[in-house]
């Protein structure tokens, strides 16, 4: 090349329509050495913690309210811990397959990339399918979105998470499609890595939800009607409200 380039691709190399030079693993230089899109993804994930943080805060605020009011169905009667544990396990393992997909493409192994991406998408779909099944079960047992505070906060929290997983599955399938059409090379491994960051993040959110929503036991249902004035705080509340003592 007669001359060097004015590197304006830096200015737009990403933004989604990212077409890397074929076979070159060279990225436009940045002031920090951090890739534009990867930095964007980390910033997004950091922001997403606040998104899920607010949802979890809402769930925890209302944890135990259904019991307080004596309006079932209650989580203690409705949760199917073995089933959800399997779901949680499935999602956890999809993180493994995701990282294996990345490892494959970093070595230029296209076939490996596609197989592991497909495996991840499959596990993700299983998780979403499981959630659909769970929701349907719950509705059958009488827990609708508006039945009580438990129903509302549960469906909205896990539903938003499920939506994240669904978007992830679509993203992974898109990567598979791109790889089939044009071939994905070592130089494109960042595409996979970024999708992976998103995917693992969705997984860690579920780790938190699984513990806070499913595993931490709920207070037995209080034998009081809605007219009763003061109420109990759920087990979890009491455990953590040691702070109460200080206040």
């Amino acid at each position: 090349m007669a001359t060097t380039a004015i590197d304006v691709r830096t200015a737009h190399g990403a933004g989604g329509g990212h077409v890397e030079e074929h076979g070159h693993s060279e990225h436009p230089p940045t002031s920090t050495g951090m890739d534009h899109r990867k930095l964007l993804m980390w910033a997004f994930l950091t922001s997403d913690t606040m998104f899920f943080g607010s949802l979890i805060a809402t769930y925890l605020t209302y944890r135990g309210r259904a019991e307080d009011l004596g309006e079932g169905p209650y989580p203690s009667e409705i949760f199917d811990i073995p089933f959800t544990s399997v779901s949680a396990f499935v999602l956890l393992m999809s993180s493994l397959t995701m990282v294996l997909a990345l490892a494959a493409i970093q070595k230029g192994n296209q076939r490996g990339l596609r197989i592991w991406l497909l495996a991840t998408a499959l596990l993700g779909s299983m998780f979403v399918g499981g959630q659909y099944f769970e929701f349907t079960e719950f509705v059958h047992e009488g827990l609708g979105l508006t039945t009580n505070m438990f129903g509302s906060s549960f469906y909205v929290l896990t539903g938003f998470h499920g939506a994240h997983v669904t978007i992830g599955v679509i993203w992974l399938l898109t990567l598979v499609f791109v790889s089939l059409r044009g071939g994905t090379t070592q130089g494109d491994s960042l595409d996979v890595e970024i999708a992976g960051l998103y995917w693992h993040f969705v997984d860690i959110v579920w780790i938190v939800i699984f513990t806070l929503v499913y595993l931490i036991p709920y207070e037995e249902v209080a034998d009081v009607g809605a007219s009763e004035a003061a109420h109990l705080i759920s087990t979890f509340g009491r455990e953590l409200s040691v702070i109460n003592g200080l206040w």
Partner: peptide
């Protein structure tokens, strides 16, 4: 006007 930056080699499937 010569194009300086190597024009992106578009991958088959993405163009």
């Amino acid at each position: 006007a010569s194009i300086l930056y190597p024009q992106p080699q578009l991958q088959g499937g993405t163009q």
